[in-house]
């Protein structure tokens, strides 16, 4: 005969003192009439006794342990100091972000002012063919009158 999983569970909880009183009494009654179960309990109890030998003699704190801990804690920043440090760190972070944003805006403004960014020249493309022809005609008149030197290609011919 082998133990069922439920018996394993009952056995463990029985030895750990985790069974409710009525269940513990019922289990104890079974032990009187079920030798197989009683042997399993004895074996488990022996194993636990063996395990507890490994606990050995527990370590004890030395006489100056508590004083040492308190002294070490004294070196730590207090909660108020930590909160203040957090506040300062947050303020520095926000200031840094504002400065970076301002620098970016200033740089974009400077580039805009220098004409390196912004709307491209589209007046020629947007001019009507008639207006363009008129501009060319007036330029020809000014070249012929000598007010404006001819383009390089014209001069070389």
């Amino acid at each position: 005969m082998t133990l069922t999983q439920r018996d394993d569970s009952l056995l463990q909880r029985h030895l750990d003192g985790e069974l409710p009183a009525d269940a513990a009494a019922a289990f104890a009654a079974r032990l009187l009439v079920e030798p197989e179960l009683a042997r399993a309990v004895d074996a488990a109890r022996a194993q636990r006794a063996l395990l507890r030998t490994a606990a050995g003699s527990a370590r004890q704190p030395s006489a100056r342990f508590a004083a040492g801990v308190v002294a070490a804690a004294r070196q730590l920043p207090t909660r108020q100091q930590l909160e203040q440090a957090d506040l300062v760190a947050t303020a520095i972070r926000v200031c840094r972000q504002v400065l970076v944003a301002a620098a970016i805006v200033a740089a974009v403004g400077a580039l805009w002012h220098a004409g390196m960014i912004g709307p491209t020249r589209t007046d020629t493309l947007q001019a009507s063919p008639g207006a363009l022809e008129q501009d060319i005609h007036q330029l020809d008149i000014r070249i012929q009158s000598g007010a404006v030197p001819p383009p390089a290609t014209e001069r070389s011919r």
């Binding site: 082998t2 133990l3 069922t4 999983q5 394993d8 056995l11 463990q12 042997r39 399993a40 004895d42 074996a43 488990a44 022996a46 194993q47 636990r48 063996l50 395990l51």
Partner: peptide, 26 residues
């Protein structure tokens, strides 16, 4: 955890648990 301890004891130091191997063989 206890099962593992028991198996290890029976494998490495069976003399520490005389008769345990036969009990509760599940």
């Amino acid at each position: 955890a206890r099962q593992r301890v028991k198996e290890a004891m029976l494998r490495l130091h069976p003399e520490l648990l005389p008769g345990v191997g036969e009990a509760a063989p599940r």
